[in-house]
Amino acid sequence: MELMIAAGKAVPKLQLEYGLAVDRVYTGSFMTSLDMAGFSISIMKADQSILERLDAPTNAPSWPVGTDGSRPPAKIPVPLPFRSTKNEESLYRPQELSQQGRILEAAIEAAATVVINLKDSLNEWDGKVGDGDCGSTMCRGATAILEDMKKYYPLNDAAETVSEIGSSIRRVMGGTSGIIYNLLCKAAYAELKANSQSETTSKHWSEALKSSISAVSKYGGATAGYRTMLDALIPASKVLEEKLSVGEDPIAAFVLSAEAATAGAESTIHMKAQAGRSSYVSAEIFASIPDPGAMAAAAWYSAAARAVKEQRQRF
Rank of each mutant, 00 (worst) to 15 (best):
P290T: 09
Y18K: 11
I213P: 06
G8M: 03
I50Y: 14
L14E: 06
S90G: 01
K309D: 15
L122T: 07
I76P: 09
V65S: 05
S29H: 14
M271E: 12
P79L: 01
L104G: 03
V246I: 10
A7E: 04
K203P: 00
G66L: 07
S267G: 00
A6W: 04
S288V: 10
Y181V: 10
D126Y: 09
W63V: 12
V162Y: 07
C134V: 03
T58I: 00
M149Y: 00
P61C: 01
A194T: 07
K86T: 10
K309A: 13
A224Q: 08
A304P: 09
V114C: 14
A224P: 04
L54M: 11
P94V: 04
V22M: 05
K272T: 07
L122M: 06
M138P: 11
Q99P: 04
S212P: 07
K13G: 09
A236G: 01
D131R: 02
T67S: 15
A142K: 08
G276H: 03
N117F: 12
L3F: 03
L230N: 05
P12V: 01
V25H: 03
M173F: 15
C134W: 02
L184R: 01
L51H: 10
A144S: 15
E89Y: 00
K45R: 13
G132S: 11
V129N: 01
S211N: 09
D23F: 02
F315N: 12
I103Y: 05
G276D: 10
A208P: 01
I289Q: 00
A190K: 15
Q311F: 04
